[in-house]
Design a binder for these strands. Structure first.
Lengths: 238, 238
DNA sequence: TTCCCGATTTGATCCGGATCAAGGAGTTAA
DNA sequence: TTAACTCCTTGATCCGGATCAAATCGGGAA
């Protein structure tokens, strides 16, 4: 038996190649805790556009995003919609200790979730200082990102907003690497981009064309983006 | 010795009438913990406009807002500014466990703070489950508010934004009461309102005049606001 | 392959809020 | 008292992004 095998001996099979296990919430758990957790989880797959949680619905479970991208949104009574965040693997979805979801969550791409019943996770959180600390860190991180985005929505021009979104997706999907060129797949269509940026579809499309003409990005099939110079795009993002 | 005296026997004098003690962070502490904390705190007063923390400065302490209102903001390189939040008593200011402040904090009104050295609070947090839980709750609350405001910035008209801000201030300063009429003092001038709403001073001023003409609010001395019908204002806020 | 249909791009025009400009109204200092 | 200042309001004009309206692209089904 190798040392690796010894270390892994109690790690549940389904967790071994999971991103949450390595970089997410589950990295804060002992093998024993992970074993308990794994007996309660349920893995689900979702198609783009599928609703995962509806605003003001009762919360009955949390879920780790193990693959794909989830859109978080709110709508006004008359239908105007605003995306308020994106969640990538291995983020934890769900308002901790909340009783009803303050927002709607929807699959942006093909999404895999690892769902945990509400009470199971809350019990685990109560018993683990390290987990509590990690979840506090994640929520503070999300708060920083939300405030950053408030600047984008309140004070940036249309072109700067689009550039900001491309940078956001690049940083979350093209592995934190800062080296140019990067290339990645957009998880959002033009309509969702517009709803995230507080713009219309037409304006998003025009500004993407403009960034393309300025040589800041190359785009194939509307979704595949290449950024030759990240620093230049960052300057363009305000 | 009365029962009240018995209960209060270990409560530090300065904490007895403090809002943080009753509704804020300190309500989660035992008298003993509070006693330790109080030996490390320093009370400071600040004039409107005074900087309390600067973006990317090192964090050396946290502070409970014990009176007044604090503006949180970010600025772009070219000077465009966006307020990203307001803190009222008894909120705790400061990015927990962060090493540098992600935002700038500035006194909006006359402000009283109760400052705690970074390490003292972090030690206390590490040792208190209840405190950790309360701070997690506060940060989740702030996250919800930030996302709510993203909707305001991304999708509402100028008049709706102004109405939203009046409602926000009303709910935080006129004591959670839902009964109309309410009346309160605006802690922000027109310029700060504009920076919070992603508008210009002139537009804020015009929209306030419009709301006044519609009979939704009455305003004296530019700062003192009376809302005869909260529900009507809420409808106007989108 | 061809047809179909939703997504995207592009063009023309419109309008809400920005910008530029002027005029109160309250406050502090001399 | 006036002068100088800051803050707010109101008016006139401009412009960035919304809206309305066609093309055009791309992917899936037969």
């Amino acid at each position: 038996m190798t040392i690796k095998a010894l270390n892994d001996v109690e790690i549940p099979q389904v967790c071994r190649s999971c991103s949450a296990r390595h970089d997410g919430m589950c990295a804060s758990l002992t093998p024993a805790e992970l074993g308990v957790l794994a007996t309660h989880t349920r893995h689900t797959h979702h198609r783009p556009g599928e609703a995962l949680a509806i605003e003001s619905d009762e919360i009955t479970s949390y879920a780790n995003v193990t693959d794909g991208v989830v859109k978080l949104s709110r709508v006004l009574r008359d239908g105007r919609q605003q995306l308020v965040g994106l969640q990538f693997a291995p983020d934890l979805m769900g308002r901790l200790f909340g009783t009803e979801s303050p927002i709607t969550a929807e699959a942006a791409s093909e999404v895999d979730l690892c769902r945990v019943p509400k009470l199971v996770l809350e019990t685990l959180v109560a018993g683990s200082n390290e987990l509590k600390r990690r979840l506090l860190d994640q929520s503070l991180q999300e708060l920083d990102e939300a405030r950053e985005w408030m600047v984008t929505l309140g004070r940036k021009t249309a072109a700067e907003r689009v550039a900001s979104l491309l940078l956001l997706v690049a940083s979350r999907t093209a592995g934190g690497s800062e080296a140019s060129p990067v290339s990645f797949e957009l998880p959002l269509g033009r309509g969702d981009m517009a709803d995230f940026l507080g713009l219309t579809i037409e304006t998003v499309s025009r500004q993407i064309s403009k960034l393309r003409n300025e040589g800041l990005v190359t785009i194939e099939n509307h979704r595949h983006v290449t950024v030759p110079d990240l620093a230049a795009l960052r300057r363009r993002a305000g």
